[in-house]
């Protein structure tokens, strides 16, 4: 299943400057693994041993995956995954 993944500026060094890339997988974990196969090293920037890194937010179709099933969240063909660094508001 193909999903589109939006890459933040800060990680585009891995994707050769591409803002939006395509990845395969039926779960977010698989999508990240597939991303890492295409762009080696990117997974380590997103995750550590305990899961998603503290300052990384990942959204599946605009919903924060931490409130879905985290890395186990199922993804479907045509879904959109957005990766963003955590920033302040207020």
């Amino acid at each position: 299943m193909a999903v589109e993944v939006r890459i933040p500026t800060i990680l585009r060094t891995y994707t050769g400057g591409e803002k939006v890339v395509s990845a395969q997988g039926s779960s977010l974990q698989e999508v990240v693994s597939d991303l890492d196969a295409s762009y080696p090293g990117i997974a380590e920037r997103l995750m550590d041993e305990s899961g998603l890194r503290r300052f990384v937010n990942v959204y599946l179709n605009d919903e924060d995956v931490r409130f879905l099933d985290g890395l186990s969240t199922a993804v479907a063909d045509g879904d959109s995954v957005t990766i963003l660094p955590a920033v302040a508001g207020g």
């Binding site: 500026t9 800060i10 890194r53 503290r54 300052f55 660094p85 955590a86 207020g90």
Partner: peptide, 16 residues
Amino acid sequence: GELVYGLRNLDEGFVP
């Protein structure tokens, strides 16, 4: 927009 997320590295992210 992207400018706002223009951090130098991910460790500069911020969670209140």
